[in-house]
Amino acid sequence: MTGRIVEVAQDGRHLSLSRGFLVVAERGTELARIPLDDVAVLVANAHGLTYSNNLLVTLAERGVAVVLCGANHVPAAFLWPVSGHHVQAQRMRAQLAVPLPLAKKLWQMLVRAKIRQQGAVLEACGEPAGAFDALARKVRSGDPENVEAQAARRYWTLLFGPEFRRDQNAGGINALLNYGYAILRSTTARAVMAAGLHPSLGIHHQNRANPLCLVDDLMEPFRPFVDLAVDRLVRTGHTSVVPETKRFLALVPMQDMATAEGTTPLGTVITRAATSLARAYETCEAVIELPALDSAWAPTALEWPRPPSVADSAPC
């Protein structure tokens, strides 16, 4: 089940558990009540929030990702349950023992998929994309030439204009991307943990200070889906992180996409990718179920819902 992404974005809220519901209150007055069965991710994106311990324990037991956001909507921490998949220890041992050639091959697959999806997004937006398939074919095992960065330099200027630079600390389009990636990261983290893998043991990313290296590796082919949503917002005049744009970006993991198994929500596709990665570690075969590499399977602007109006938005 994909489930809902619940964001608490207003200061001073208190979150608690009541008879199977997540309850949002302020100064003793209940504001919202959400069935726990419907919640996949809880995003805490405000100051002065308080939580009951019972709620956090229950969310962890259910495998709900709790994301604590810091400045500029970038996740600062995730709540990770102690017990997860029934073969978690076995899979983590396989993850620790992954041979370097297999890791390089897996990273090659992820980078190729990301670059081809970037080309598909550009094509869906009416921009020239022919070079991206050629760039994807140039990616060798481990991407030693860093073709990923070469593609990124072309991609951002084609998608958002020659003056655009990707900067996590900037506002506007960059802040929208940050928020969209935070949603995607939480969805991917939940999938990785549900597959019995350790999120800090990456395929390519090895930053000691990053507890989610594997999550950041696996989400790479899915980033262009966020980029497409942000492009849709920008083209309709939405350039700030406000309640209506956050609500729109939170829908990204729930969007349907065509796969070999039929139409499937993106969040489910990410779950399948994490599960297939766990199998790849155990079997030492470089096979990951990833989004289709055919641009015809990439989402187009017409398949996304219209950006909601201020009147439609009701954040907690």
Rank of each mutant, 00 (worst) to 15 (best):
L49R: 10
A76W: 13
D38Q: 05
S186L: 04
V310L: 12
L277S: 07
W80F: 15
N169L: 01
P144H: 02
T245K: 12
T271P: 08
D256W: 13
V39H: 12
D38R: 12
P253E: 11
K138G: 14
R140A: 10
R62D: 15
G262I: 08
Q88V: 15
G130A: 06
G20P: 09
V269Y: 01
Y281S: 05
T29L: 12
V57Q: 08
A103E: 06
V24A: 11
T29W: 14
N146G: 04
F21P: 09
A250C: 00
I115T: 13
L100S: 04
H73L: 05
L68P: 10
L266D: 02
L106K: 01
Q88S: 07
P265F: 00
K114P: 12
D11N: 07
V287C: 04
L122C: 14
Q88C: 08
P199I: 04
I115S: 12
P99A: 06
C69S: 09
A44L: 10
R116K: 03
A260T: 02
E285L: 03
S52D: 09
T245Q: 14
E148W: 09
P315R: 08
L293R: 11
A89M: 08
A311P: 13
T275I: 04
E148C: 04
R223I: 03
L277M: 09
A286G: 07
A136L: 10
S240A: 13
R19D: 12
G126L: 02
M193C: 11
T263D: 03
T58F: 07
T259H: 02
R27E: 06
G84L: 00
L184E: 03
A258P: 05
V241P: 15
D312H: 13
G70S: 07
L218P: 00
L42T: 01
P81H: 09
Q108D: 09
L36D: 04
V111Q: 05
F132R: 11
R116L: 14
K138H: 10
T58I: 04
N53K: 10
L96E: 11
P299I: 05
M1H: 12
S186T: 06
L135S: 02
M193T: 00
R185A: 12
A136K: 00
R4D: 08
A25V: 11
H14W: 01
R62I: 03
E145C: 08
G70V: 12
T264L: 01
A9D: 15
G63D: 12
E145H: 13
I183T: 09
K246P: 11
A152D: 12
T58M: 08
A76H: 10
H204I: 07
S52P: 07
L79P: 09
R165T: 04
F222Y: 09
A298H: 11
V111H: 01
Q10P: 03
T188E: 03
I270W: 00
D256H: 08
I115A: 15
L31Q: 07
V147E: 08
N146E: 13
L56V: 12
M109I: 05
Q150F: 01
P162C: 09
N45C: 11
R247C: 14
G172M: 04
V230F: 15
